[in-house]
């Protein structure tokens, strides 16, 4: 095989690598696939560790340096593992003028982590996100796929967090 993995990592048996390889094979030959392969890899692995980037580099013939450049440029890519639940506090303008900063402060106090960090138990990652486009519900947060709107009362937050702790 022309583009067989030549590194010594133990990827052949890992079903995640098999899945990624299958995706790469399905898009190979198209131009400019680096981004979509990285996106797919992040969906599969949850983040983009260096080994995964090396694997991609070898399989799509894009230098690792270039891939690393791409994966560190875009805010949606992460090189470190994330918590089980992802909390995104919308810091779009509408949310901001409606008091999103208070929500950030409350989450920081409740979880005892800074924005961008993951709790020690690996349960939550806290992020301030770009506009989620639900400006009518401002201020808005998103935990995984769930959207919580009109969060004017910061005291509602501990209760919301408890739902994910169970």
């Amino acid at each position: 095989m022309q583009n067989e993995c030549k590194c010594n990592c133990n990827t052949a048996d890992d079903p995640r690598y098999v899945e990624l390889k299958a995706y790469i094979d399905s898009v190979k030959g198209n131009e400019g696939i680096a981004m979509s392969v990285l996106q797919e890899a992040q969906t599969i692995f949850g983040y983009l560790p260096l080994e995964v980037q090396k694997f991609i580099s070898q399989n799509i013939d894009v230098p690792l340096a270039e891939l690393y450049g791409v994966s560190t440029f875009y805010s949606q890519f992460t090189l470190t593992p994330r918590g089980k639940h992802h909390i995104g506090i919308c810091l779009g303008t509408a949310c901001y003028v409606r008091g999103a900063q208070k929500l950030v402060d409350k989450f920081v106090a409740e979880l005892k982590i800074a924005v961008g960090e993951t709790t020690e138990d690996g349960l939550f990652t806290l992020d301030a996100t770009r506009c989620l486009g639900c400006c009518g519900l401002a201020p808005v947060i998103m935990i995984d796929e769930d959207v919580y709107g009109k969060l004017d009362d910061v005291d509602a937050i501990p209760g919301i967090l408890d739902k994910y702790r169970g």
């Binding site: 979509s36 990285l38 996106q39 440029f73 949606q76």
Partner: peptide
């Protein structure tokens, strides 16, 4: 993948090409 600058034409093109 989360980059505001990609709304700019030439940056958007670079992004479709798979670059920063």
């Amino acid at each position: 993948a989360g980059a505001f600058v990609c709304g700019e034409e030439t940056a958007l093109i670079a992004s479709i090409e798979g670059k920063r």
